[in-house]
Computed example of a mutant assay.
Amino acid sequence: MSDAYQAINWNLIEDQVDKATWEKLTEQFWLDTRIPLSNDLDDWRKMMAEEHQLVGHVFGGLTLLDTLQSQNGMSSLKTNVRTQHETAVLNNIEFMESVHAKSYSSIFETLNTAQEIDEIFAWTQADEHLQFKAQKINDVYHNGSPLQKKVASVFLETFLFYSGFYTPLYYLGHNKLNNVAEIIKLILRDESVHGTYIGYKFQLGFNELEENQQSELKDWLYSFLLELYENEEHFTHTLYDPVGWTESVLTFIRYNANKALMNLGQDPLFPDGADDVNPVVMNGISTTTSNHDFFSQVGNGYRLGQVEAMENQDYLYGLNDTK
């Protein structure tokens, strides 16, 4: 029967990267309910009003982008896959993006009043720069080519999230909001795998294009990145000018924009490297997380196995041998 429905067979793997990623993501599974966020309340009460607003808006923005990724991003990528196993991996990513979005609400519930939470979510709908990047990414998800959709996904997860990630990593480096930061580090570990995997799938398709098609796609890719970065500059000034962190955050953003390009197999655009990033934040960006005592603080130690996020080189072999 030519139209017979095909069952997914995990004993016959077309691309070993699909299997490796599935195993990595399932080993890394976590839920926000296991992190004792209330232990951060003493830190929270000592922080200034400007810091409270920054944290609320940062996590509000991340909630919006994770919502976009879970509701629209992965479903758009699933319309063009190479293998059934790739669909399974994207299903996993889609679910974890929902976990990420919910995690921020757990933070709000712990740290903020009901009135403050209402203000945060109203702000996410009203802020022009946050809405700009969400709408730009969403437009590609709805109207872009399959490879453009992968670019948008990698730019979102490896670049645009990081203006928000800076704040909890900065506080972690100053021994504040440690349990909030634990959630962020778990999210960072997931995003590292997501960006690397989708970037790898992009590279497979990109390498199959004719030279003129590659050139045209690269022109679009870099133009899109610059458009997003220009908006991100404005967004960062809005968030961080009140606390004086703007220039340091912009360096961090440019560094991660380069990482996004590397995930896509493209050359870095900005001069910023790891040595230029605030070392306190750079130390926090390590995707290993704390192992807390089960009866006091529960970090990722409750997981069945200790795993690290995938690095770029974990997938490089796949470009030469995908079978």
Rank of each mutant, 00 (worst) to 15 (best):
N179A: 05
Y222D: 05
I120F: 07
A49I: 12
E191P: 02
N91Y: 13
V249N: 06
S286Y: 02
L169W: 03
Q131L: 06
N320I: 15
K78I: 00
S38E: 15
Y255W: 06
E182C: 04
N207M: 14
M96L: 12
Y255Q: 07
L25A: 09
K149V: 05
N39Y: 15
S290P: 01
H129R: 14
S153Y: 14
S163P: 08
G318I: 02
G284H: 02
K102R: 15
T158Q: 11
Q213V: 08
N80Q: 13
T124I: 08
E97K: 02
L147Y: 06
L239N: 08
F59R: 02
D40F: 01
I285G: 00
L226I: 04
Y222Q: 09
L156E: 01
W123Q: 00
Q131I: 13
E50P: 02
E191C: 05
D42P: 00
F294G: 13
A4V: 04
L204I: 14
F224M: 10
L264H: 09
E109I: 11
L130Q: 10
N278W: 04
H52V: 00
L37E: 08
F155Y: 11
N179I: 10
N112W: 13
L169M: 05
D66M: 08
Y171S: 05
L269S: 05
D276M: 15
S215D: 15
